[in-house]
Design a protein around this nucleic acid. Structure first.
Lengths: 104, 104
DNA sequence: TGTACTGTTAACCTAGTGGTTAACGATCCG
DNA sequence: CGGATCGTTAACCACTAGGTTAACAGTACA
């Protein structure tokens, strides 16, 4: 099991799937077409996204409808926001430090 | 080479290092103490963060001073923000859809 | 000088990731 | 029923990630 949204997003295909689902729910075929890999490979990526809770699945007949689960990924986004706020505060200090140590 | 901020952040130790550096520049020892792994392991994590451009290093005698590089990680944060904005717009639609299909 | 300290490199090992092909399960539809 | 479609599972393979120990390089300092 994965259970780590950052790990779930660490692969470009999975980020691509998330981007597509952000435009609206879609079937597996629709959400994953054009990545240039086989269906089993896609199936594994979806499994990761589902285990992490990023994506949810509703079976409808022979197709599966995928949707995003915003709450889970917002944890990662919040982490990002927090870090970025800290960087903002820190940037001048770091800059000053580097200029002191290695004046061009 | 890695060159992918999401991959760089996909490991909890690397996120921990970034969190510490967000509080200010630090030496390798200071920034990486308490993770319960050996020094070579830390050295590899730092290499990943450096290759990705997330962390920069200045050698000072026998110690190395690490700092964050806000610009690079802000790319990842922007991606997050964009996704979150889309989710916000999308949330009601998905919710409505699910309620239609599977009324409790 | 020699010894302690900071950090990296080298060599190696294990487990996991990401991909494949082949086969299957279930559903829709003529 | 019988075939096409959607998607998964099984078995396998190559490569990478993350960890270890041992040795090394450079710097500080008594």
């Amino acid at each position: 099991m994965v259970n780590d949204p950052f790990k779930a997003l660490s692969h470009p295909i999975r980020r691509g799937i998330v981007e597509r689902l952000a435009a609206g729910p879609a079937t597996v075929g629709d959400a994953t077409a054009g990545f240039g890999v086989s269906k089993p490979a896609i199936s594994k990526h979806l499994k990761v996204l589902e285990e992490t809770g990023v994506v949810t699945r509703v079976v409808e007949g022979r197709t599966h409808r995928l949707s995003l689960e915003p709450d889970v990924l917002s944890v990662a986004a919040d982490w990002m926001d927090r870090q970025r706020a800290l960087w903002g505060r820190l940037f001048d200090v770091v800059d000053e430090y580097l200029n002191e140590r290695e004046p061009k």
